[in-house]
Amino acid sequence: MRMSIACRPSFGVTPVFEAEFDKFADEYEREHAASIRLSGEAPAFFARYKINDVADVLRRRGEKPLRILDFGAGVGNSLGPMREAFPDSEIVLLDPSSQSLDIARTRFPGQAQCQPFDGETIPYDDGHFDLVFTACVFHHIPEEFHVGLLAEIGRVMKPGGSFFLFEHNPWNPLTLHAVKNCSFDENAVLINAVQMKTRMAKAGFLKTKTVYRIFFPRFLAKLRPLERYLAGVPMGAQYFVHAVKPGL
């Protein structure tokens, strides 16, 4: 539930949506917290677990990314844990909402480069990034643009680099409740992991792995260590797809 690149006029949607997401930037934390209250967790919990998962996977693979792209970074909610996990990396926050990027700069001065996005072309050379991360962005983007944007992400990744795409799981009833009650997600179309992997394959990401996450609300937090055994069960509140760019 972050700022969405779907509001770009270049996607064929009305420019009003871009203004709406700029307006929501100041209200984001409050609205987000209200929509997920049944989980018992604050938005920071969801930002941190994602980065921890990414760091754990990369650690097992022996990867230390030098350049990281946060695609659709919004107000920078992932930047704090990302900077902790990757203290020596160059981090770029990419988003079409200028107001969201302004908030991110204020929250984390000097911690990352805030890069405006035109909704079509990521303004970096081929093979620039070792790691691309995106969290709950694609459900805001019209389906017809998914493959093209995924291919653009692949273009700026170096061969052998990792791409982590996190999304809400539409097969989880609490996720559906949260999305229904979040003003940012009014026009969202949730994507199941099978659909997402198919679109990623069309964009050139042929080697992928899906992991389902967040099975237990906070009052059942003692059971969360069991989640590693449930990673293949498609009922977690969210999931991520890890893809490795071909070429090495």
Rank of each mutant, 00 (worst) to 15 (best):
C114Q: 04
L149S: 08
E143L: 03
P109H: 07
R218P: 09
F145K: 15
G12Y: 14
H242M: 05
V92C: 11
E144P: 04
P142C: 03
G148N: 13
F133Q: 02
M3D: 05
D125E: 15
P96W: 14
T106Y: 11
A34H: 06
D185H: 10
L149Y: 10
G161F: 03
V16K: 05
H146G: 06
K50A: 14
C7P: 03
D88N: 14
P81F: 00
V137S: 02
E41I: 04
S4M: 01
V57W: 01
F240I: 02
P246S: 15
A193V: 07
L66R: 08
P109G: 00
P87S: 00
V137W: 09
G127L: 05
Q115H: 01
I91H: 12
M200D: 09
F108Y: 15
D22Y: 09
N169W: 09
A85T: 03
Q195M: 04
G232I: 10
A55M: 06
A221R: 00
S39M: 03
T106M: 09
A6M: 06
W171R: 11
D56F: 15
I103C: 12
M196N: 09
S39V: 02
E20N: 13
Q195C: 06
E41V: 07
T198S: 03
M157H: 04
G62F: 04
P9C: 00
W171N: 09
L38G: 05
H140P: 04
A25D: 08
A6W: 14
H140S: 02
V54T: 12
M235P: 07
H146F: 03
L230Y: 10
M196Y: 02
V16T: 07
I36Q: 03
A237M: 13
F11A: 01
K50W: 01
D70G: 10
D95C: 11
F117P: 04
T210S: 06
K202R: 08
V179P: 05
I191Q: 00
E167M: 00
C136R: 01
P246C: 09
Q195G: 05
F219M: 08
V13N: 03
T210F: 08
F164R: 02
L165N: 15
M1C: 01
K180V: 02
G119K: 05
A6Q: 02
D26G: 08
R61I: 08
G247L: 14
V75G: 06
S183N: 10
D53Y: 14
L174Q: 07
V241P: 04
C114I: 00
F145P: 01
A19D: 12
R228N: 11
A104Q: 09
I51W: 13
V147H: 02
A34L: 13
V244Q: 12
I51H: 10
V194R: 05
A188F: 13
K207G: 04
P116M: 13
D118P: 00
P65C: 06
H139P: 04
V57H: 10
F24W: 09
F129I: 03
L79K: 09
D130Q: 00
